[in-house]
Amino acid sequence: MADTVATLPGALTRAAPPPEPPAAGPHGRHSPLQHRADELARAGRPGRSGVELREVPFLTQFNLRRRQRSGHNAAATLGFTPPLALPRTPGTVRRSGDRMAVWLGPDEWLIVTPPGTAAETGNTLRAVAEASAGPDGEADTVYTAYTEVSAHSTTLRISGARARDVLRKVCPIDLHPRAFGGDACAQTLLARGARVLLVADREPDGFLLFVRASFADYVTDWLLDSMAEYAAGDSPFKNEER
């Protein structure tokens, strides 16, 4: 009996110490895909027929709801420098400097600004909300609400000549440049279940993928698998349609 008791805890004491937490990134935080940065860097292949995948962590994101009492008619221009107009057309993005406003719904937008600018963006949105608040009961009262949602999702940037082909394998929406141009965005399901926001990036053939932090690993697995044939070298399957 004494031997058994001595053996079992002995095994436990030899167990490896708990792994060190990864070093915090800038802004004192850990990004959801920080531990896979090397893997992402190795998986890509630059060049004419390549594709690259990177995490763009810590983007500042605000959800903005804004509507008139009489309907969905209360868009505005946000007082950044330079000013940033809210897109009115469904599925489009407006950019200004390094900020962008993404259409999420007829009265809902995602305001994306560089990392560490939450205070400035919050102040700008507060000014918009205060400027538009009318006395209650008026027919044209504009309701404005803004919420910081930076920690809700992280961002993947997929770029390169094969980026569209990679996304086509996991995403059901039409990504042809005619249907999904340089100012397009879409909320959809990726890889059979992950809700994502897909935004055309500034550079041609580039996409930003806003994915929930808890789904980031899953989506990354799918994308890496989808990228494998293009990362390995020239594919025997030529896509003449391009």
């Binding site: 469904p90 599925g91 007829p106 059901p172 879409a186 909320q187 959809t188 399901l189």
Partner: peptide
């Protein structure tokens, strides 16, 4: 009406 034709699963 806003996003256009999408798969039923959405």
């Amino acid at each position: 009406p806003w996003c256009g034709d999408r798969d039923e699963v959405e």
